[in-house]
Design a protein around this nucleic acid. Sequence first.
DNA 1: TTGGATGCGACTGAATCCGAAGTTGCGGGC
DNA 2: GCCCGCAACTTCGGATTCAGTCGCATCCAA
Lengths: 168, 168
Amino acid sequence: MHGGCVASRSADSRTGNGSPSAVDAVSLAIIEQLQEDGRRPYAAIGKAVGLSEAAVRQRVQKLLDQGVMQIVAVTDPLTVGFRRQAMVGINVEGDLDPVAEALSAMAECEYVVMTAGSFDLMVEIVCEDDDHLLETINKRIRTLPGVRSTESFVYLKLKKQTYMWGTR
Amino acid sequence: MHGGCVASRSADSRTGNGSPSAVDAVSLAIIEQLQEDGRRPYAAIGKAVGLSEAAVRQRVQKLLDQGVMQIVAVTDPLTVGFRRQAMVGINVEGDLDPVAEALSAMAECEYVVMTAGSFDLMVEIVCEDDDHLLETINKRIRTLPGVRSTESFVYLKLKKQTYMWGTR
DNA sequence: TTGGATGCGACTGAATCCGAAGTTGCGGGC
DNA sequence: GCCCGCAACTTCGGATTCAGTCGCATCCAA
């Protein structure tokens, strides 16, 4: 499967206004449950949010189909053999989109975002070692047409990483 | 619950050498399966990786217990009511740790990482609106003792967000 | 060789998932 | 006012899956 890009999928459902296919309070509560444990049984979620098991199942399916949420395993890259990570700020000449698309297509890019400020794009890179990191930045990113300059921030230590959006 | 920080948990199991309680190839294959679909049945995973259902279940449980992996729902913050996100680069005077700790304790900070380069810390912030974002950066981050300067990159559009570590 | 620990497959009852069908509530067209 | 369609919910029964537990093979150290 090629799946796995929340942003682009949800962008589809967002065409038009700024407030997408609004997620109501109940669905938010369901998401919170699944943020605590992605395999929690539907019946348990239903009890927590006041819905039947089937209703929860239908809502979860819809949230997944719409790309509002995905249920996945996440790991600490360091424990699975990726020893170098970096954030790369990029300045682009002309249209951002083709560059952003090209970056998104690269397996090493975990995270691609367009920003306002002194960078046009910020990209998180996950690599196996220094050589891999160097090659990715120097040979693959900096040579993309439109890329004017880059600045790299190699990760020294990951202090916090959460997935609790909506839980506040 | 307060759970949910992969980094700190896996750091515990990482004390000692650089290569932790090494994840073998079969467990990696299991992780890959769960990165595609966090609710995939154990039997289906077993068929894919060549193990019995029970063996997969035991391995998954161990991976979860060890903090190597967690199975969670992830969302695009924009679709669940958080309309402003930013990456903030921070320069610190003196020891980084207390500042990193303070940032990690803030609910708005999704992601805190120490970096090499022209920033000492990079932090991802998720806020409900502009006021919230301004207050967080200006009143809560910039006033932390030790923070010398900050630079903000407000997100315009999230292009890619994956959790496919290890899938390559 | 022996003892202990570990990982695996097989089995079983209980819990869960899943699809189909029926119910309710609401708004638009006639 | 009435009917129709739509969307979300509930109920229900059968198939599947989950969570223990058991015995067995392997590996490693004593």
